[in-house]
């Protein structure tokens, strides 16, 4: 009589969740060990962070500012995973969305609510346009969207840097490598927060509902799970790919507008602040579920916030990114292990 591991075809839900939680703890433990080896006191730092982040409204609002773009970029990626694709270009679409919103905000005048709506619309359209070429290439020529969406991120970053330091540079202050302050702002919520957070949550809920309760969501699910079955059932796979990818770009673009009008207020190089890339992680941790994105985005925001708070103690954001990388790494292991269960080995015969 003995025990052995046996692989099951699909992971049990509880096992998958446990795997994820253990992965996060393992990543934090690794980070703690490294911190201890460099002569810091990880547990004290953790306690310090926890007090600052959760002990005050201001701390929670800081997390709220960080979680807003992460929810939206996470949704952008989660949408494409539903049809079996990956939008790695959230970073670029985010930046281009911010750029389009800044263009509208800086160059047009109007009442604030109208202008905010116009900026949001411009950002969504710009984000969708930024993913248009990869979308067409994917749907009609089978070009791998991972590469095309990724490469356009660099184009977007350079374009924003050029606009912010060149034609639209704030020449009144002189020193800033950014545009003028956009005069239209997201309505505030609480002390430091703004209405971007409820909007992002609403987008996640609407996306989750649409994928579950609409014909479009079902067809997307089938096309993503097995394109052959979609063709068989007469589902227009190309049209669904185009719609989902453009929607994904639009959501990422919207995230850029909310960041600009709610938090940054000036278009500058680096406005996207890795939110696009972190969104991939948010979506992966959420296993492509739009509602779970809310939780994983909150986790990621908390980690980012920890980096900011602890930077007073000599940590920087790179350390936080390293921790997020560890989480992803352990999650991959945990997901695989969730397929296994312990079984009793039958007594050997013969």
């Amino acid at each position: 009589m003995g025990w052995r591991l046996q692989r099951t075809p699909s992971a049990h839900r509880a096992a998958a969740l446990t795997g994820r939680i253990l992965a996060i703890l393992a990543a934090l433990a690794c980070a703690g060990i490294v911190l201890a080896m460099t002569g810091r006191a990880p547990i004290a730092m953790g306690a310090d962070f926890w007090d600052t982040a959760t002990g005050s409204t201001a701390g929670l609002e800081d997390v709220g500012l960080l979680v807003t773009p992460l929810i939206l970029t996470g949704i952008a990626v989660a949408l494409t995973t539903r049809i079996g694709l990956w939008n790695i270009g959230g970073e670029g679409q985010f930046g281009i969305g911010a750029l389009a919103a800044a263009a509208v905000g800086l160059h047009l005048d109007g009442p604030e609510p109208v202008m905010l709506l116009a900026m949001a619309a411009a950002a969504a359209v710009a984000g969708a346009l930024w993913i248009l070429v990869p979308t067409i290439a994917r749907a009609y020529a089978g070009v791998n969207e991972l590469i095309t969406t990724l490469l356009l991120n660099f184009v977007a970053a350079l374009l924003i840097a050029w606009v912010a330091t060149g034609p639209w540079r704030d020449r009144t202050g002189g020193a800033l490598a950014a545009t003028l302050r956009v005069p239209y702002e997201m309505p505030p919520l609480g002390e430091a927060g703004h209405w971007g957070l409820p909007i992002a949550v609403a987008v996640a809920v609407v996306a989750a509902a649409a994928l579950t309760f609409t014909r479009f969501g079902y067809e997307t699910r089938v096309a993503g799970a097995n394109p052959g079955a979609a063709v068989y059932a007469g589902i227009p796979v190309r049209a669904r790919i185009v719609a989902v990818m453009l929607l994904s770009g639009a959501v990422a673009g919207m995230a850029g507008m909310i960041e600009l009008a709610g938090t940054a207020h000036r278009l500058q190089g680096g406005i996207s602040n890795n939110y696009g890339y972190l969104g991939i992680m948010v979506a992966v941790l959420a296993r492509g579920s739009c509602l779970a994105v809310l939780a994983t985005a909150a986790l990621m925001a908390t980690l980012l916030n920890a980096g900011i708070i602890l930077s007073a103690q000599g940590l920087n954001t790179s350390a936080v990114l390293a921790v997020t990388g560890l989480i992803l790494f352990f999650t991959a292991i945990g997901d695989e292990l969730a397929h296994y269960k312990l079984v009793r080995r039958p007594a050997p015969t013969g």
Partner: peptide, 22 residues
Amino acid sequence: DRLRAGLAPSLSITDNAVLREY
């Protein structure tokens, strides 16, 4: 080839059963 065309093996049995009448 039911696994390549007739079914989406990774989706639920419910999703597969309604493929013609959704």
